[in-house]
């Protein structure tokens, strides 16, 4: 049994390799991009819209609203990054209902990549909002003594995000695999349903935490940072 889809290597040439994680991610990317293109190519401005357009509008507007509720005043700026985080993780986890599918989010490499992107995105958006000097000043707040703690806090955020997503995804998949061996019938199906739920919850929590970190750094939020699992 594989602990991670990274270990299933399909092609390798030196440092470059093509493992199942990357291939599955490409598949999901293709699915999302093509699906979005198919639906949005015939968008209508009328009050009466198609079902798919209504569905996508609901999703996009809900994400935007969530970002706004966290405290970012111009949610359109962050919609691309945070929305994609949510959609990618959610879709990757939902597809676990298909037998034989291994979610790329179950790979610590993927979750690390996403966590690193959040880690980069936080100062990126903060500098864009406050300027470089304004962002750096936040590390010395409330006093200069807090500087190392603030740096550690910033790094731990990223690590926590990565490990949280990986742990949940990997554990879900592993429990399911183990249960399939032990009790191959009804019980794994229930666990699969639970896995769907936890997958969606993880997507939501990961996105919201990323938003909270960005909002805290960008300084447009009064919301206190709550480091939940």
């Amino acid at each position: 049994m594989h602990l991670s889809t990274d270990e299933i290597i399909l092609w390798q040439h030196g440092f470059f390799k093509l493992n199942l994680t990357i291939v599955t991610t490409w598949g999901l990317m293709l699915l999302l991009a093509v699906g979005a293109k198919l639906v949005t190519r015939n968008l209508t401005h009328e009050v009466q819209t198609t079902r798919w357009q209504s569905l996508l509008e609901v999703i996009v507007i809900t994400i935007r609203k969530q970002i706004e509720e966290v405290g970012l005043r111009q949610p359109e700026k962050y919609l691309g990054f945070i929305g994609t985080l949510f959609l990618f993780i959610a879709i990757a986890n939902i597809f676990t209902i298909f037998p034989g599918y291994e979610p790329p989010t179950g790979s610590l490499s993927t979750t690390t990549a996403l966590a690193l992107l959040v880690f980069v995105a936080v100062p990126f958006y903060a500098i864009r909002e406050r300027g470089l000097r304004g962002y750096l000043k936040t590390f010395a707040e409330p006093t200069l003594v807090m500087l190392p703690f603030n740096v550690i806090s910033e790094l731990s955020h990223t690590l926590a995000l990565a490990v949280r997503l990986f742990g949940n995804m990997m554990s879900g998949s592993m429990i399911l695999a183990i249960l399939l061996i032990v009790t191959p019938f009804i019980f794994p199906m229930v666990m699969s349903l639970l896995g769907l739920l936890t997958g969606m919850v993880q997507a939501y929590i990961f996105s919201v935490l990323a938003t909270v970190f960005i909002a805290a750094a960008a300084g447009t939020s009064e919301t206190p940072i709550d480091d939940k699992p």
């Binding site: 994680t21 990317m29 968008l43 996508l56 990054f81 994609t84 490499s109 992107l117």
Partner: peptide, 27 residues
């Protein structure tokens, strides 16, 4: 894989911005 996934994700961000968020928000 980490680098590849980060690149993949950034590409996905660009794709979704172009094909999903902008058209939907415009509409």
């Amino acid at each position: 894989t980490v680098i590849a996934q980060a690149v993949n994700f950034l590409i996905l961000v660009w794709l979704l911005k172009r094909f999903l968020y902008q058209p939907i928000l415009k509409a």
